[in-house]
């Protein structure tokens, strides 16, 4: 099932650009350390936009994997708090369905690197799904 989903993910060009990988069906995803996700070469640090995009895309895939719907959920809004710099390392995130309604779906996303107890960013995403 995870492999099936990874194949679907790999159909999405932006997902291939980030290099996102589904770790399991519980909403865990990986953003590999790729040069194309770097925003500051001196530190070096990941681009906040790459981290945010990874979290947003993870949330969308998680909704698809949980909902059994084939139509792509539409993102309505997305908010992210950056709490630590994203080092040039593997980044993980876990998505949690806060609300799964017929139309609106709310997802909470936490991203971390070496320690799940020390997140680098927290986000929430609101999606609209068609019946």
């Amino acid at each position: 099932m995870t492999d099936d989903f990874q194949a679907r993910i790999d159909r999405v060009p932006y997902a291939r650009t980030l290099g996102i990988q589904m770790i399991n069906e519980d909403g865990c995803f990986l953003l590999p350390a790729r040069k194309s996700n770097i925003g500051n070469p001196t530190l070096p640090a990941l681009h906040g936009g790459a981290i945010a995009g990874f979290m947003e895309l993870s949330a969308m895939i998680h909704v698809l994997s949980q909902g059994g719907s084939d139509s792509t959920p539409k993102i309505v809004d997305f908010a992210v708090d950056f709490v630590r710099a994203g080092k040039f390392e593997e980044t993980f995130c876990r998505c949690e369905l806060v609300f799964f309604g017929r139309k609106m779906i709310n997802v909470s996303i936490t991203a971390w690197q070496d320690d799940p107890g020390r997140p680098i960013a927290k986000a929430r995403a609101q999606f609209l799904v068609k019946d």
């Binding site: 999405v12 932006y14 980030l18 681009h47 906040g48 936009g49 790459a50 945010a52 995009g53 990874f54 947003e56 895309l57 993102i75 997305f78 992210v80």
Partner: peptide
């Protein structure tokens, strides 16, 4: 385009 790219911009 994916929303993530717009977010990064």
């Amino acid at each position: 385009l994916h929303g993530g790219a717009i977010t990064a911009l």
